[in-house]
């Protein structure tokens, strides 16, 4: 667990503190095209001169501070974008996880505790939602919402709003958490100590607050790293398909998408954000596993 937390903390710190030191890493503004710019006496995007002189090659990785990982097709500093993009990816995944856990807890507890028709309807809805492949659902929602924006009353989320992927990712993983929570609450309802609490005249809300929520809370926390890892991966997938984070904002997924066009000449543009996603997901999984192990030990 310590290793996972250390990796996560390092990635988080590197990304969150990026604005403080990015100027030393960045050749230019990481969000602005630098097509005709120069660095170290050469063009950032140099037209090829060998043979027929076809195509343009971005400046490669350097050891001179700026353009540490080279430039992308727009002439932007990949290292700086990796830091800022990481901040976006982690922000989206983190917020989506929080949203998912809150919604899942509400629905799971409500469904399991109230029971009856409410349970039938909510459980049916969760099953229905979970019947859709998660990626397909996320892609469908993204395409619709990005092309038409989301307008509900006064709430308006435009295509370039980061709240849009947060909302989509937060919703699609709700059944993944809510269904086990509901099952846990259903089991608790039939537990002897809950029945005893009912028999002694305990109010439902009191029972819920004092006896049920404390039981499901550790399990809910245990879902956080796993859901965050899945949200991170899904965000990256959506952004690779150009239906996640929209320009000029950047995330690790959009960086991978940018790198696809340079996979032969400047593979680092796609590999670096890919490695960042991989390291973060592995770290989150280590943390999740360790949390589950500690829960088992306590039991």
């Amino acid at each position: 667990m310590r290793a996972g937390i250390a990796v996560l903390a390092a990635i988080l710190l590197a990304c969150l503190l990026a604005p403080l030191y990015a100027s030393r890493v960045s050749g230019t503004d990481p969000f602005r095209s630098n097509v005709n710019g120069t660095a170290f006496g050469t063009e950032v995007l140099a037209e090829n001169t060998v043979g027929l002189g076809l195509g343009v090659t971005p400046i490669g990785p350097t050891w001179r501070g700026a353009y540490l990982l080279g430039a992308d097709t727009q002439g932007r500093d990949v290292a700086a974008r990796l830091l800022y993009g990481g901040r976006t990816s982690l922000l989206i995944a983190g917020c989506a996880t929080a949203l998912c856990l809150v919604l899942a807890a509400l629905l799971g507890v409500l469904s399991g505790f109230v029971g009856g028709a409410v349970d039938t309807v909510l459980a049916g809805l969760l099953d229905l939602l979970w019947a859709f492949p998660v990626y397909l659902l996320a892609i469908s929602l993204s395409i619709v919402l990005i092309s038409q924006d989301l307008r509900i009353g006064l709430l308006q989320l435009t295509a370039d709003s980061l709240a849009l992927p947060v909302l989509i990712l937060g919703v699609v993983y709700v059944p993944y958490v809510a269904r086990p929570i509901r099952a846990q609450v259903l089991a608790l309802r039939r537990a002897e100590f809950i029945e005893a609490a009912h028999a002694t005249g305990g109010a439902p809300l009191h029972i819920l607050r004092r006896h049920i929520l404390p039981q499901i809370w550790p399990g809910l926390i245990g879902f956080a790293p796993v859901v965050m890892a899945m949200a991170l991966l899904t965000e990256a997938a959506l952004s690779v398909l150009s239906i996640g984070v929209q320009a000029p904002a950047a995330s690790w997924g959009t960086l991978i998408a940018d790198g696809q066009a340079l996979i032969y000449t400047r593979p680092m543009v796609a590999i670096a954000p890919g490695l960042a996603v991989l390291a973060t997901v592995l770290a989150l999984n280590v943390v999740g596993e360790a949390w589950r192990a500690s829960l088992e030990t306590r039991r």
Binding site: N48, V50, L54, T57, T73, A261
Partner: peptide, 14 residues
Amino acid sequence: PPADRLAELGARYA
């Protein structure tokens, strides 16, 4: 051709 193959085509397959 994809952008990142242009240099190769122009140099080796002129």
